[in-house]
């Protein structure tokens, strides 16, 4: 009895002393669908480093979902300290709705605030039975293409724009590109709402002949599910996907977490952070890390949304807004 009493006093004392020296800090990182595994590792590594640096115990919670949906949650009041989303259009939305970040948020960190990049590749079944080598093979009759709905999935917008960019370059005009993309979507039997859902439809349900996927998702699928079932086909041209990151100013200023949130994002640019990104199949920005992992990331022609589509706002208006080019695939003449 006495021993137990003494122990509990000790515990109280211990708890009091640690809380006096070091604080418990929490951060919420609101991210998009396929970054779960990446940020699990990044969070552990950064929390350890932060503990050493400041003595504070840092807990980073992460939330994942479709990029647009996640942005909407933050706009509607989810207290995210940082957002790490699929496209800058969604973070722009945080500025336009409620001024949660400043207009020039993307200039605050190097490389358009995108510490890692990715691109869109094809995942096909083993042996590539339909011989799909490049985008023009996807519009052939009898080819099933699996890609999510660009209205609800950030990843699917990259897919759509990659196909469009390829078609415009090889066929020469936006009109021809429209026909090409329309034909491509005629080959899509299922429109999932998110990237993970599309991967499941292709991998588990056996639908379609090719999955348009983030390079990191495709590499993950091949590594996890096995090289004997799937292989990756890299098209001649694709899009440079730059998933951006930002602190949410309104939230960090209210919660007093700006310093730790900013170092968290800068950590992504350090060699250690870049190494983790590469390990999780994101293309690192850092030259030396990129060289080390060069075998994983084949070279191909990459176009950016800025140079090919005049930025995300123009791209959204022309392609994804109500009645824009994507809608006209299904409801012509509107």
């Amino acid at each position: 009895m006495r021993i137990r009493l003494r122990n509990s006093w000790l515990a109280v004392l211990l708890a009091a002393s640690t809380s006096a020296i070091a604080a418990d800090v929490t951060l919420l990182n609101v991210s998009y669908d396929p970054t779960r595994e990446l940020y699990r590792d990044v969070n552990a590594a950064f929390a350890a480093q932060w503990k050493q640096q400041s003595g504070d115990t840092l807990t980073i919670r992460q939330s994942h979902g479709g990029s647009g949906k996640q942005a909407r949650s933050v706009i509607d009041g989810l207290q995210a300290d940082v957002v790490t989303l699929a496209l800058s259009y969604d973070i722009d939305g945080l500025h336009e709705n409620g001024n949660l970040v400043p207009a020039d948020w993307q200039k605050r960190l190097p490389d358009n605030s995108a510490p890692y990049t990715s691109t869109i590749v094809f995942l096909v079944r083993k042996g590539n039975p339909k011989q799909l080598k490049d985008w023009n093979d996807l519009v052939r009759d009898g080819v099933g293409v699996i890609t999510p709905n660009p209205k609800t999935s950030g990843g699917a917008r990259w897919n759509y724009l990659a196909a469009w960019a390829y078609a415009r370059r090889t066929l020469g005009s936006d009109d021809a590109a429209r026909d090409f993309v329309t034909k491509l979507y005629r080959n899509v039997p299922v429109l999932d709402t998110g990237a993970r859902g599309a991967t499941t439809t292709f991998v588990e349900r056996g639908q379609g002949d090719v999955l348009l996927a983030w390079e990191n998702e495709a590499l993950l699928a091949v590594r996890e599910i096995g090289k004997d079932r799937f292989e990756i086909v890299v098209p001649s041209l694709s899009i440079l996907a730059e998933p951006p990151v930002s602190v949410v100013d309104k939230v960090v200023d209210k919660r007093g977490t700006r310093a730790v949130a900013e170092s968290y994002l800068r950590f992504l640019y350090t060699p250690q952070g870049q190494e983790l990104a590469a390990k999780h199949h994101y293309r690192p920005r850092d030259r030396s890390v990129a060289e080390k992992y060069a075998a994983d990331f084949p070279a191909l022609t990459l176009v950016t949304v800025d140079e090919a589509f005049g930025g995300w706002h123009r791209a959204h208006q022309t392609h994804f807004a109500d009645g824009a080019s994507f809608d006209r695939i299904y409801v012509p003449g509107r």
């Binding site: 479709g66 647009g68 949906k69 909407r72 706009i75 939305g93 709705n97 709905n149 209205k151 609800t152 899509v188 039997p189 299922v190 429109l191 999932d192 709402t193 994804f320 807004a321 109500d322 809608d327 299904y330 409801v331």
Partner: peptide
């Protein structure tokens, strides 16, 4: 399958519009 005009339900259309912040 969520194909517009064929197998797209109205609640999905609502969610899609919300994702567009409409």
């Amino acid at each position: 399958g969520n194909m517009p005009m064929v197998s797209e339900i109205a609640p999905l259309l609502i969610v899609a519009k919300l994702d567009q912040r409409d």
